[in-house]
């Protein structure tokens, strides 16, 4: 059974199809979705603008997450929103372990290192091709 799915959320232009595919799968299986966004604080520049940049990034991340929640709600899909900061790959793997998820979904355009992720993940990992329509029922 795939009771718990994690979708790694990045900017809309990156992970749109991965999110759609995950919601579509969750609807069919009755799974719970954890939508995870990790703000990469290591790549943020030091200096006076850092706090503002972090604040703007966080607000934008919440916007993307709540749009996912709204879409899930319309389809009666359970979704939990998780916003974290730090090293995205480390935080993502930690969260997957903490919540005992059974499938991890990412975009094929992810900013994470796919080989390292697959090597270290304890659960199956699905990469969704962002160039292909994934919202049809044949997926």
């Amino acid at each position: 059974m795939l009771d718990k799915l994690v979708v790694f959320v990045e900017d809309r232009s990156i992970s749109n199809q991965a999110v759609k595919w995950t919601l579509s799968l969750a609807r069919r299986l009755g799974s719970r979705v954890f939508a995870v966004y990790v703000i990469d604080t290591n790549t943020m520049p030091e200096g006076p603008d850092r706090e503002k940049q972090l604040s703007d990034t966080e607000e934008n991340a919440w916007k993307i997450l709540y749009e996912i929640e709204d879409a899930a709600f319309e389809q009666d899909i359970r979704v939990s929103l998780l916003l974290n900061q730090g090293n995205p790959l480390e935080r993502l793997l930690d969260l997957c372990t903490s919540y005992e998820v059974q499938l991890l979904v990412l975009s094929s355009n992810t900013g994470l290192a796919p080989a390292e992720l697959v090597k270290r993940s304890t659960m199956p990992v699905v990469f969704v091709n962002e160039l292909r329509r994934c919202d049809d029922q044949s997926d």
């Binding site: 604040s55 934008n60 916003l83």
Partner: peptide, 17 residues
């Protein structure tokens, strides 16, 4: 008012953290 709703949720979530 979906956009305003999402923006408000995002703003409040950010503030409260």
């Amino acid at each position: 008012k979906k956009t305003e709703y999402i923006m408000t949720l995002a703003r409040v979530s950010k503030l409260l953290r």
